[in-house]
Amino acid sequence: MSAAEDIWSGPRESRLRVVISAIGLSGAGFIAVIVALSDVIARAPAGAVKVGPPSHVPDVMYAFGTDVLGRDILSETVHALAVTFSSGLVAAAIAIVVGAVAGFAAVRAPLRLGVALRGIVGVLGALPVLLLAIVVVGLTSHEFAPIAAGLAASPSIFNRSFDRAMRLARSRHAEYARATGIPASTLLRRDLVYEVRGNFINVAGRAFASTTIALATLSFLGFGAMPPHADLGLMIASARANYLELWWPALFPALALILLILFARLAAALDEGEPP
């Protein structure tokens, strides 16, 4: 039983979960459309200066205002959202493959290899995702930030997936399958199909949310995206110098980032198995 089932048990809560998940998926879909049309929606190319008057307050002409270099914040936010979204997808894909799928398969590994792997990953799980990602970026380069975020988020996803697969491996249907001579690989395929069908959106939503937070924080701290390919974290970091007076260059990217993470978490149907 997942944590979500603990908190959200009962028919009324189940219906609410479906509604919230639909809201999350719709929101994520809307953001995906914005990202796909980013070059059309944005009036200026990424990083273009003197598009408008410097430090212009948001108004009808410049909906999100401009920064000290005259960059249109709406255009910059849309471009940065596209970078964050695509990097988040790469990172989430890595986290799902290295974490969820590997954790699921490790249970069926021979010679108690899976238990040993669980122990090793458990040690990595004793470190925060952010610090692990920083180590990977530090040992490689900034271009590897999405891979670093995906790898760093993997241990906790691996552990959850491993524990879930262990419960399935000890379940009654698995015992019957073994007793009737069904091969372990067939059983693994069957469990994986059911797992993907039942939980993929939950796992993917959580993985996307956690890796996007890690990626944005990496960029904010100077370990992630580099100019001219600014993501939302880097945009907020750039606006930090004078955001106490010029609040709009920091506010709109921050809101876009929060919405992106929020929709991913809602799409996960409030399965709050992982710490926020």
Binding site: G10, R12, Y243, A250, A254, I258
Partner: peptide
């Protein structure tokens, strides 16, 4: 209660806020 439990999604907005964004908001 069950009613208050249904209000829990509001926590998602807080949980979706990265720590550095919250820190900058607090300073502001």
């Amino acid at each position: 209660s069950r009613t208050l439990r249904a209000a829990a999604p509001l926590m998602q907005i807080i949980a979706a806020t990265p720590v550095f964004v919250a820190a900058l908001a607090l300073i502001w």
